[in-house]
């Protein structure tokens, strides 16, 4: 079977004047189409570096990363960060069009249809400071989706939100991702979030980062994320990941 994303024996080293630091060592895993993968690990273990490698922003020191059997290129990847990173001087529509402008696409149809589909039509001319935290995050996701990426990289996209907003935004963003049928890789320090959202969870060790475990869940059959959190499997999986991280 052809995997959508293949990460094979990938390592990444960077250099300071004093030292050579190995951030990631021999990481290998595959991701299939429409899968939702979560990557968890101790802070500073290189989770975000791994996403930058997948996005092609930095090159691996060894190994290779392929999307649909080809080397990674920016336009196949959509990247969503901890902060929404909306440009304050651009209105909602203009922020969403950002990726299209960079790839020289003039067609607004997809942008407008996504804005309408996800309830932002009345806000398309508003500036980011006029939106709520949840709305801003939704705009950030639509900005990512509008370039039609094959894989979504989510770098702790909910961690900057307050608890109450987070509860609704996580479900909101998850629904959009599943509706758009996007393969997603989520990096998070929140084990509960990883278990409740992902089909598979990759547990990384501390630096130099290696894969400690790859765990699968069956929770994605349940629609509501809050309901998933009330299941026995959820609790067992959280405990198991916690133990893996403690070792």
């Amino acid at each position: 079977m052809n995997h959508q994303l293949v990460i094979e024996n990938v390592g990444y080293r960077y250099h300071t004047t004093k030292d050579e630091i190995t951030a990631i060592e021999n990481v290998s895993f595959n991701v299939d189409k429409n899968e939702f993968i979560a990557i968890v690990g101790p802070s500073g273990c290189g989770k975000s570096t791994l996403l930058s490698l997948i996005a092609g922003i930095i090159k691996p020191s060894h190994g290779h990363i392929k999307i649909n059997c080809e080397k990674t290129k920016g336009n196949k990847i959509g990247y969503m960060f901890q902060q929404d990173n909306l440009f304050e001087w651009r209105n909602v529509l203009s922020n969403i069009r950002l990726g299209l402008e960079i790839t020289h696409q003039k067609d607004n149809k997809l942008a407008l249809s996504l804005i309408e589909k996800y309830g932002l039509k009345d806000f398309s001319r508003k500036l980011p400071h006029e939106l709520s935290g949840g709305m801003r995050q939704r705009v950030a996701l639509i900005r990512t989706l509008v370039t039609n990426p094959e894989i979504l990289l989510l770098d702790e996209p909910f961690s900057a939100l307050d608890y109450q907003t987070r509860l609704t935004v996580v479900q909101d963003i998850y629904d959009i991702i599943t509706k758009e049928q996007k393969t997603s890789i989520l990096v998070t320090h929140d084990i509960g979030e990883a278990v409740s959202l992902a089909n598979r969870i990759i547990v990384l060790s501390k630096r130099p980062s290696k894969i400690k475990a790859i765990l699968s869940t069956n929770l994605t059959d349940i629609d509501s994320i809050e309901k998933r959190k009330r299941t026995f499997e959820y609790k067992t999986m959280v405990d198991r990941i916690w133990e893996e991280l403690q070792d």
């Binding site: 930058s52 996005a55 922003i57 290129k73 920016g74 336009n75 990847i77 959509g78 990247y79 960060f81 901890q82 902060q83 990173n85 440009f87 304050e88 001087w89 950002l98 990726g99 402008e101 960079i102 790839t103 370039t147 990289l153």
Partner: peptide, 24 residues
């Protein structure tokens, strides 16, 4: 991270300057 965002969208350095650095 805003620079990283533009890089992930495939923006050149000139585009980053034009679309992000100067307006912000």
């Amino acid at each position: 991270t805003k620079i990283l965002l533009l890089q992930s969208l495939g923006a050149s350095k000139f585009t980053i300057l034009r679309k992000l650095i100067l307006p912000s």
